[in-house]
Design a binder for these strands. Structure first.
Lengths: 174, 174
DNA sequence: CCGGGAGGTGCGGATTTCGCAGAAGTGATG
DNA sequence: CATCACTTCTGCGAAATCCGCACCTCCCGG
């Protein structure tokens, strides 16, 4: 089992195992790390030994790689919940148009705890922000009193969520 | 230590500890389960004993509750990654307008692996869908060949992501 | 008053995690 | 080509964690 592993490693991992950086600063992941991530996307608490068996690595090696991936910020292992069952009954996506510095407005949105998601986009909105609230009053308050109150927010358009159909965390599994 | 715990339980947990269902079918969470979820949102691999100490419960009790929350689908413990570092360089939100049955279109989108997120909304779009792709060609293919090709899709509008500013998983932590 | 169910506790034994020392591969340097 | 520095993997024990189980307590309905 051991020598077999060594053999397979030199055979199909050699070319992809150099962990370089692709110019940006984002770590380049090899096939084994991808496989580890896939395992942890199925079950974030899966034991290192089980992952090792699946990807062909020792328990200790998996542990080191996972720790490194966490340290580098490539992935995080967290509990994710359905907002509805945790008491947040109103959600909305808000499209925002800005005059002037888009990034500073994005930063202001990021600072709001009700704002779950902020992305700068190309298209008829400068920013899309997802809002998670307890009820309609709360949502109204956030959109009208806090977002529209920001200087240089030109206009907003809201899309209240009626039904969430899909929400996956399966990046890298294709 | 033991009697102290019992005392605190009867004092501040009695009223919120009944795990009923709120009419819908969504389980009603008490304060202790919320606290457990918060712990696991900070670190999905935190040991049960440490969680127990933080929320005032034994290791075994925490384990049972976590298992139940997972079984019920209230939460899942998973690895989440930054799409960019995993090789997906193009993302976009697509607003879609439909003539006829919105839900069947939403189901069709849900079936596509490149579609990460599907939500039915009130507002000037019937559906918002988030697309995660490897490159521009891939994105173009998904939007023009696959989404627009769906019957009864009246129109689409794309918002290509320029910069992701915030992405949290901190529901229930407020 | 007496089940019955839900949820907690404590306790061992099996597993897993953790830290560390040694081996092996790679690239740079003289 | 020898060697050094660096990274990553492996193989241990020891410590900590997970897991199943038996028993207890509380609460509610018959």
């Amino acid at each position: 089992m051991h020598s077999e592993h060594v053999a397979s490693r030199s055979a199909d991992q050699k070319d992809s195992s150099r962990e370089s950086r692709n110019g940006n600063g984002t770590p380049q992941l090899d096939a084994v790390s991808l496989a580890i991530i896939e395992q942890l996307q199925e079950d974030g608490r899966r034991p290192y030994a089980a992952i090792g068996k699946a990807v062909g690595l020792s328990e200790a090696a998996v542990r080191q790689r996972v720790q490194k991936l966490l340290d580098q910020g490539v992935m995080q292992i967290v509990a994710v919940t359905d907002p509805l069952t945790v008491g947040f009954r109103r959600q909305a996506m808000v499209g925002i148009n800005v005059e002037g510095d888009v990034e500073s407005i994005a930063d202001a949105l990021t600072a709001m705890s009700e704002v779950e998601y902020v992305v700068m986009t190309a298209g008829s909105f400068d920013i899309l922000a997802e809002i998670v609230c307890e009820d309609d009053d709360h949502l109204l308050d956030v959109i009208n009193k806090r977002i529209r109150a920001l200087p240089s927010v030109r206009s907003t358009e809201s899309f209240v969520y009626l039904k969430l159909k899909k929400q996956t965390y399966m990046w890298g599994t294709r």
